[in-house]
Design a binder for these strands. Structure first.
Lengths: 167, 167
DNA sequence: ACAAACTTTCATTTTTTTTTGAAAGTTTAA
DNA sequence: TTAAACTTTCAAAAAAAAATGAAAGTTTGT
């Protein structure tokens, strides 16, 4: 396999993985492309390499910057903008965790708390509902807190976790 | 808020959360419904409660059973089939992790290994590609192994992890 | 202030994913 | 063996998500 082929395969795979985890394919592909590029890439080049429209490129780059995992760069004497990806994988994991927690888990927790707080009558069905949603709330809250803590370590959290777990 | 409303809100929220994580909405909704039901539910009732077609119910129940988080139950003297969800949250997390690892992470790892193994020429671009994909491979492999190890604990792995992390 | 060079927005189109429902399949009981 | 009661399958339809591209917006240099 040669370079170009390998690069393309990587971009496609990363895109597919993104889709499976609820991240739009193009967004994941742009991220993949930037991660393996050793120097900043212009929007024009991204459009060319991924064969996508200007609008698509623009919107997905914006989204990636909102996630904090892609940065704009300005080159001296160049009018157009270039982009780079966060390449430190610990940092990348931390940022993705934070965003998903903020956008998806926290709101879900709020609902779980609400619905588990109905005062249950005496029916079996209601008792079970309150019991199960309360357990779910506790579980998700705990998991979310672990994520928080883990990502506080920031540097090399995964390696440190490995040591703790594998021992 | 009363029971019926709370139950509906929970089902909708779980469905939305599923979508955001790449799980089809109906599948997540059926799972939510079964999780908070204190007794087995028939396909007829699922269709009725979620307002979905027979085919949809059938296919998503099959998928949930393939994931190992929903079970068929037979009631004595009843022709039709009933369904229950895995209600132990540790067990649920373990099963979901295992499936996602098997279906999505392992195949991605295989590709990462392939593409990071091209013998790089001397260009900066190729060196960076090999370096970055190698790092990514190592990172994902390690994370996947941690998941494996964690879920081997099985009982109360989250609580045990909390102790390790928070200390 | 102007215009060139570039980026963003968003209504419309395209693609992808999900859902439907009717036909085919299965199981059970008589 | 037949038929009733139920489930599964899958081609077609519908819905949802993503992509396009042209117009509007912005920035920079003169």
């Amino acid at each position: 396999m040669e370079f170009k082929e390998a690069k393309n395969k990587f971009v496609q795979t990363w895109g597919a993985l993104g889709s499976q985890w609820g991240i739009n394919k193009t967004m994941a592909q742009i991220h993949a492309l930037l991660m393996v590029s050793h120097e900043p890439v212009s929007m024009e080049d991204i459009m060319e390499e991924l064969q996508i429209s200007r609008g698509n490129a623009s919107m997905n780059l914006r989204a990636l910057m909102d996630w904090g995992i892609v940065y704009k760069e300005y080159k001296a004497g160049e009018r157009r903008e270039f982009f780079t990806a966060e390449k430190d994988l610990d940092e990348l994991a931390v940022k993705i965790s934070r965003e998903r927690s903020k956008r998806e888990i926290k709101p879900a927790l709020k609902v779980l708390k609400e619905v588990s707080s109905i005062q249950s009558d005496n029916t079996e069905a209601e008792k079970h509902f309150v019991d199960q949603t309360t357990k779910l709330y506790d579980f998700v809250l705990k998991a979310d807190n672990v994520l928080d803590k883990i990502t506080e370590y920031k540097d090399n959290w995964l390696a440190k976790l490995v040591v703790k777990i594998m021992k």
